[in-house]
Design a binder for these strands. Structure first.
Length: 608
DNA sequence: TCCGGAAGGG
DNA sequence: CCCTTCCGGA
């Protein structure tokens, strides 16, 4: 068993694929890192270590060299590379593991959970794809008769909505500079993971699926949760950045057992950070999810709907799934009223950890807050260093970028921040952000509760591994729906945020499913945030908060007057959204093209 | 070592 | 946007 490299640190394919990033064709560092991490040959250079998602750069110089080679930047060094890594802090893609040299940690919890709440690394024979958020029209089938395989094209993986900025970024990988979309071999899609396990037998399955239910091919539901994981044994040494998912509480109809993975400790000697919604990391880079996870997710989603008046349309049809009533009974109208099944105590969605799941780690939460001095004037450095960057013509073209990058024009920006999110912002969203720290139960700021104009975020889950909270995004594309299955051409047809928000105190629009969308979103959000603050001990990182707020403001300001609509954030935003929705048949070609164009992601620097 | 501002490039 | 380059500071 072994330590067979490749499968050990398998990541979901979407993590490597850049399809959703038409705008940025350049390979991104985190992406590159991920790749190095997955390659056995680089284990002496960089490797997973410690907590999930935590990795150590064993040979900084080498990593830098590789990165430099990849980017055709011969002058690259660890100092520079690390600077780039530090930029990820704000983006929440990474954070530093303090005290450990050259050690960083991916925010996979968030990244994964946000997008694919029930992803499971559990068995190698599962689809790597992420479960998309079931949409109104499609029914969820439990279980599928056949294990479906991966859908490599993330367009198909993208779940409508449920994107946080980070997630978006995360998903927005990039392609190799030097080798890009010229490839026509669609098989290359798996190129990245080519070195790995079987993409399996069931690949063909995809083709059998009715076009209208692309999701199904994405899902692999455990026919028999609990057994499935016993097959492929995992080597103790296995590491995966993905946390396990302890689904608390007695399950619903379909969640009879806890995932065996829960008891697994990939790295016995190392700290283990379990997280809900994710199951056993292991072998494979395949994803799957089981009913428990589904339930978990649905609960969360429900909660979201409940708290933020999201469109519950996604809940319309989930046979056999019991969606627990969300907490906060104070709310008059349960958004989930239309759901089957009796309400279950949502022990984990909100409030505290049930203590049940073995992830009942309750870190004492030694919050550390860094207070930053108010941004004063900026120092002006006038040394005109003319560094001739090593020329390179590696990069490819980006035919998509339609950005009108006019971020900060006139007016002295008060605080300059690496924006965490892009496009749109929620009105005065009270951000609750706590700087990330390992072993903390932190509440992330609700990173962009706005997504592509149609997403909302839900409260974080305290039952998380304490490293991150999840932010579930749900599609709020109410009006379009109806039979929009493939209606949204590539998802480009998006409703402007406006349509998604109802006036306070006003009855919300009725979604196709006949569900009400309650307004007051913000109010509850604030409420939530407050709760979070309380939980966090009332403390929070002011500086961070400020920054975040500044960002929000900035975005706000930017948006104002631009008449920006959903797609206004730039081509990327729109496209991403498009990818998030199951592509209608007619969009397939484009998708696959994009897919092809972005499939290959090699470490090799083919053209410098 | 690590951090993050500033400026610039593509 | 996503770094790359530089750099002062902790």
């Amino acid at each position: 068993p072994p330590f067979d490299g490749d499968s050990r640190f398998a990541f979901p394919d979407w993590a490597y694929k850049p399809e959703s990033s038409p705008g940025s064709r350049q390979i991104q560092l985190w992406h590159f890192i991920l790749e190095l991490l997955r390659k056995e040959e680089y284990h002496d250079v960089i490797a997973w270590q410690g907590d999930y998602g935590e990795f150590v750069i064993k040979d900084p110089d080498e990593v830098a060299r590789l990165w430099g080679a990849r980017k055709c930047k011969p002058q690259m060094n660890y100092d520079k590379l690390s600077r780039a890594l530090r930029y990820y802090y704000n983006k929440r893609i990474l954070h530093k593991t303090k005290g450990k040299r050259f050690t960083y940690k991916f925010n996979f919890n968030k990244l994964v959970l946000v997008n694919y709440p029930f992803i499971d690394m559990g068995s190698g024979r599962v689809p790597q794809s992420a479960p998309p958020v079931p949409t109104g029209g499609s029914h969820f089938r439990f279980p599928p008769s056949t294990p479906s395989d991966v859908l490599s094209s993330s367009e198909e993986l993208r779940s409508p909505g449920m994107f946080s900025s980070v997630a978006r970024r995360m998903a927005r990988g990039s392609v190799s500079d030097c080798s890009d979309g010229t490839s026509t071999n669609s098989e290359l899609e798996e190129a990245v993971g080519a070195d790995e396990r079987g993409v399996g037998p069931d690949r063909a399955y995809r083709g059998l699926l009715p076009p209208r239910l692309p999701h199904e091919s994405l899902f692999r539901i455990y026919p028999n949760p609990g057994l499935s994981r016993h097959g492929p044994r995992v080597h103790p040494d296995s590491l995966s950045p993905f946390p396990v998912s302890p689904l608390p509480g007695p399950g619903g109809l379909l969640a009879p057992t806890l995932s065996p993975a829960l008891s697994m400790t990939p790295t016995p000697h190392l700290p283990y950070t379990p997280s809900p919604s994710l199951s056993s990391p292991m072998l494979g880079s395949h994803f799957s999810f089981n009913p428990e996870d589904m339930k978990h997710y649905l609960q969360a989603h429900t909660q979201s709907v409940y708290n933020y008046h999201l469109s519950p349309r996604a809940f319309l049809h989930y046979p056999n799934i019991i969606i627990p009533q969300p907490h906060r009974p104070t709310l008059e109208k349960p958004a989930a009223h239309h759901l089957h099944g009796p309400p279950l105590p949502l022990s984990h969605s909100l409030g505290h950890q049930p203590g049940g799941g073995e992830d009942g780690l309750h870190h004492p939460s030694p919050f550390k807050f860094k207070l930053q001095p108010p941004p004063l004037g900026r120092k002006q450095r006038e040394s005109g260093s003319l560094s001739a960057s090593a020329s390179s013509s590696c990069s490819s073209s980006s035919q998509f970028s339609s950005f009108t990058g006019s971020s900060q024009a006139a007016g002295p920006p008060k605080i300059k921040v690496e924006p965490i999110s892009d496009i749109e912002s929620e009105e005065e969203v009270e951000v609750t952000d706590i700087s990330e720290e390992d072993d903390l139960n932190q509440n992330d700021r609700d990173d962009e509760t706005n997504g592509t104009g149609s997403s909302f975020s839900a409260p974080p889950h305290p039952d998380d591994d304490g490293d991150d909270d999840e932010v579930f995004k749900t599609p709020a594309t109410p009006t379009i729906s109806g039979g929009i299955g493939g209606g949204l051409a590539g998802g480009l047809a998006v409703l402007p945020p406006v349509l998604l928000k109802s006036e306070p105190g006003q009855a919300a629009p009725i979604s196709p499913g006949g569900t009400l969308c309650i307004p007051l979103k913000l109010r509850f959000k604030r409420r939530w945030n407050e709760d979070q603050k309380m939980e966090a001990g009332g403390e929070r990182d002011e500086a961070e908060d400020k920054k975040v707020r500044a960002e929000e403001e900035e975005r706000e300001g930017r948006r104002e007057g631009t008449g920006e609509v959903a797609n206004g954030g730039g081509g990327a935003g729109g496209v991403i959204l498009g990818l998030m929705l199951p592509p209608p048949p007619t969009q397939r070609r484009a998708s696959s093209e994009l897919q092809r164009a972005t499939a290959q992601l090699s470490l090799e620097n083919t053209g410098c």
